[in-house]
């Protein structure tokens, strides 16, 4: 029983870390830049298909495909940001929602056209397959890898945002766009880079997700729901909030399905409702 509990917690944490990598960029663009980018899920899906192409068509190792997924998603997103999204910054949330959800439909159709509607399997390197035994328990090697990557990303994000000059400029631009411009910060560029980093992380999340949850053209819709829950439970714009919320929801999801199978799939919604009932601004939200 204790062993089961440990494995459930571990699997839940791994799923939570996947949700964190998928969602944290959305939290940043939504919370810091006030742009409702539902296409975040489509950028995640793009990262997944980049990994499929890089490993299957180019025959490169899985680990090489991860930075490729990040970079392609970041570059494509900044193309969209420069040409389309920036026109919507002052257009109101409904317009942003309608436009970006339309992009998810388009991306889904494009993915189905190019790759078909089937699940896309990928080949993992030997050391990420199977299980690692520790204290008599068997932990999935890929899940350990996922947790380590998520922790590294968290560390880099916190360091980057809290302890670098660029991070201070992002926060300054968010606090007061006009004052930031008047003191010499190129706010457009700062926001474009931030947006690219957030979307790149979504792409990386999409690549990491294939082995755990699969990849098909509905990915952008399916995981958008999880992303929105993580962002709203964690609080907009908070990296720590996204981390805690993703861990909580991941563990609740796995534990719910394991211990209360009848309720399983609804567990995360119950948690979301409970948290937002008590703290409408989310766990770490400021407004």
């Amino acid at each position: 029983m204790i062993g089961n509990l440990a494995i459930v917690l571990f699997d839940g944490l791994a799923f939570g870390m996947l949700l964190f990598v998928l969602s944290v960029g959305l939290s940043v663009t939504l919370g810091l830049m006030n742009f409702v980018n539902l296409a975040h899920g489509a950028f995640a899906m793009l990262g997944g298909y980049v990994t499929v192409l890089v490993t299957r068509e180019l025959g490169l190792p899985f680990l090489w495909s991860l930075p490729a997924a990040f970079i392609v998603a970041a570059l494509v997103s900044v193309g969209f940001e420069r040409t389309l999204f920036r026109r919507l910054y002052r257009a109101g949330e409904l317009n942003q929602v309608l436009f970006t959800i339309g992009l998810v439909f388009a991306a889904s159709a494009a993915a189905a056209y190019v790759f078909g509607t089937a699940q896309q399997p990928i080949q993992l390197p030997q050391f990420l397959r199977g299980v690692t035994e520790f204290a008599g328990l068997r932990f999935g090697s890929y899940r350990i890898f996922l947790i380590i990557i998520a922790l590294v990303i968290t560390g880099l994000l916190v360091l980057g945002l809290e302890y670098t000059r660029f991070g201070a400029q992002i926060r300054a631009a968010v606090d007061n766009q006009r004052a930031a411009q008047g003191l010499g910060i190129d706010v457009d560029t700062v926001f474009a880079v931030t947006f690219a980093l957030g979307s790149g992380l979504a792409g990386l999340g999409g690549a990491l997700a294939i082995e755990m949850v699969g990849l098909d053209p509905s990915f952008g819709f399916h995981y958008l729901v999880y992303m929105m829950i993580v962002v709203s439970v964690g609080g907009l714009g908070s990296i720590a909030g996204s981390f805690v919320a993703a861990s909580l929801l991941g563990i609740a999801d796995v534990a719910g399905k394991y211990f209360v199978p009848d309720l399983g799939a609804f567990m995360i919604y119950l948690i979301m409702i409970a948290v937002l009932f008590l703290r409408p601004q989310g766990l770490f939200g400021k407004r």
Partner: peptide, 16 residues
């Protein structure tokens, strides 16, 4: 004055 509220005093000075 438009001080950046989520920056420390020193970050307000160094960020720009």
């Amino acid at each position: 004055r438009d001080i950046f509220a989520s920056l420390t005093v020193e970050e307000n000075l160094t960020a720009t």
